[in-house]
Every structure is written in C-alpha cells, then in structure tokens.
C-alpha cells in the first residue's frame, strides 16, 4: 500500500506490515537538475566547501583539536601544572588492571542501559497519551515537557534536596504520613543509590523521548489506521503493525542520541552521589573527572574518559547502519 504524503507528493511512503521508511535518508545526494558537465560539478564542490567552512572550523578547532589532544594526553603521565612524559598505553594498561575499572564499567553499562530503557518506555507512554485527543492537550504537553527545560545542574541539586536524608521532601513526607518511622537514606543506601540516580536521569531525559515520539506519532497518516481498521485490525494490532514500524527510525535516532548523552553525563553523579556509597554509582565520566581534577592526573583522566569511547562508537555505527539500511530498502 502506498500513501502519498500530502505535504510532499514526491515522497511516497510505503506502509506494508513492516512499514519500512523509504524516505529521504539517502547517502547519495539528490541531484538538482539534469546530468551536468564536470565543470559545474567542480563548482558545486567549491560551493559546498564554502558553505561548510564555518561548521568545519567549529568542528576542527572546538571539537577535533581538543579531542585529539585528549588522546595524546592519555598517552602521557601528565599531571596538572607539570610537563608530561610519553608513556604509550601504560595508562590504559594500569586502568585495565585496576579492579575499580571493572566495577566502573559494569556500573556505567547498567546505568546507561536501565536509564535509556526506562526513558524509552516512559517516553513512549507519554507520547501515546499526549497523542490521544483531549481537551487542554497543549497544556499537558507543555507541563510534561518542563524537565527538559531545567538545567541539569539545577535538576541534580533539586533532587538532591528532595532526597536529603534530614530535610528532604521524601523523608519528610514519608514520616509525616507514617509510611516509615525511620529515615530512608536514599542516596547512601547501597541498594537505593543507583536507582535514585537513574530516577533523576529518567526524570530529566524523558521529555526528549516524548517530544520526538509524539512528533513521529503525529506524522503517521490517519489513513493508515483507517485502512487497518477496515481490514479488521484491533487497536493492539494497529499499534504493533502500524504505529511501531512507522516509529522505527525515530526510535533508533532518539535512543542513539540519548545513549550518548546519558553515558557521557557527569553532573548527575557528581552532584548526587560522587560515585558513592562504596563506588556503587561510580561511572566513567565521574571517575575521569575526579582523576583529572581531584588527583590532577590529566593523562590518566583522559585515558579513563576515552576508554568508553570505542564502545559508543561501535554502538553508533551499528545503529546508523541499520538506520541507513532500513531507509534504503
């Protein structure tokens, strides 16, 4: 079944049961005009580089240069304030040998996976709810979006204040209403600390999911549902055979961005737990930060912050590949 998209008649949307996207996510640029002689092409190339100059300058000086200098740093035993000596991969070897590394790696994976998973489920739920017709829906959309507008520093501080063992909202509430008689040490109980950190990350990051998912839901042509209904599909079937396939690309992109943002975030742990209790919430960005600035071992700090990098790169390559393939099919 093919549906013409009303806003863009050139783009046909295929919506078979697998409903793969066939839109414009192409590796090859669409050519404007007829086949052209090479002189024009060369000109196009010049123009392209011209247009990209500011972007490339930004990437070169503000991202690539600092990044490569961080790699170089990770191969030195450099301390703050003193010149470093080239030590090859000694920092990485030391790190791999340290048992702190294993614990941190496990925590980082757990933290990222659970937080992203919960944000996904919660975000999808929010988007589905907000997609239902309802009075004042715009107001609800704005309200549920609010956490995204709050600076991460403030989110973390505010939640720390909610979790505070002696003066926080949670303990006050629970004790006032006699749910518990003793203080619950939210951020210092080894069984609760990671869960609390993840809860804050989820609180802060879910609106991004609900925003993009909602955007995706609204782009699904109503005709598809009508057609499915005529074919006798139940609401649940519609959800699995129309909605989910149409959102696949959005899922991938959102999860990819969010995985990066979650895995590299420093502020939540830094403000909430500082990696405690007993390293239960220690993750790479925080370990790198304390090593580089607390211990002032810049080389080692760089190594720690880079050690997670290949994992993320692999993840992203896998995701974008899939994305491009499903688009090209």
């Amino acid at each position: 079944m093919l549906v013409r998209r009303p806003d863009n008649p050139r783009v046909a949307i295929s919506a078979g049961p697998r409903g793969a996207f066939r839109e414009d996510v192409l590796v090859e640029a669409p050519a404007v005009g007829r086949p052209r002689p090479s002189a024009v092409r060369r000109q196009e190339s010049w123009l392209a580089w011209g247009l990209l100059t500011p972007t490339l300058l930004v990437i070169l000086f503000l991202v690539a240069y600092p990044f490569f200098s961080a790699i170089y740093l990770s191969l030195q035993d450099k301390m703050v304030g003193a010149p470093g000596r080239f030590v090859g991969v000694a920092n990485y070897l030391d790190l791999l040998r340290d048992e702190v590394f294993l614990r941190t790696a496990w925590n980082s994976v757990l933290y990222t996976a659970v937080a992203v998973g919960l944000k996904f489920v919660l975000g999808l739920t929010m988007a589905l709810i907000l997609d239902q017709p309802r009075r004042l829906n715009n107001v609800f959309r704005t309200l549920l979006f609010v956490p995204w507008a709050v600076p991460v520093v403030i989110v973390a501080l505010n939640w720390r204040w909610i979790f505070d063992d002696l003066s926080g909202f949670l303990n006050n509430f629970l004790i006032t209403f006699h749910v518990t008689s003793d203080i619950v040490s939210w951020l210092s109980d080894p069984r609760l600390a990671m869960a609390c950190v993840i809860a804050v990350v989820v609180w802060s990051g879910t609106p991004f999911y609900s925003m993009t998912f909602l955007a995706g839901l609204q782009a699904i042509p109503k005709e598809l549902y009508e057609a499915a209904e005529i074919d006798g599909a139940s609401t649940l079937q519609q959800f699995f055979f129309v909605t989910i396939p149409r959102l696949k690309t959005i899922f991938l992109t959102t999860v990819m961005l969010s995985t990066i943002w979650t895995a590299t975030n420093l502020q939540f742990v830094l403000i909430l737990t500082k990696g405690g209790p007993a390293s239960r919430t220690e993750i790479f960005p925080h370990l790198a930060y304390t090593t580089a600035l607390g211990a002032r071992r810049l080389g080692m700090g760089a190594a720690i912050s880079l050690v997670f990098f290949p994992v993320l790169v692999v993840l992203i390559v896998l995701l974008t590949r899939r994305m491009l393939r499903s688009a090209d099919e």
Binding site: D164, L166, I183, S185, S188, P277
Partner: peptide, 21 residues
C-alpha cells in the same frame, strides 16, 4: 551516627548540626 552520613557531602554535618539533628 545517622545512616545517611554515608551520602553526605562536606555540608552534611553542618546541616545536621544547624538543623538540630
């Protein structure tokens, strides 16, 4: 010692004393 002290930052003991806890 309160259990929460495990999670205190540098201000934790100040706050506990100042709030008479």
């Amino acid at each position: 010692i309160p259990q929460g002290a495990i999670g205190w930052d540098n201000s934790g003991n100040n706050k506990a004393y100042q709030s008479k806890q």
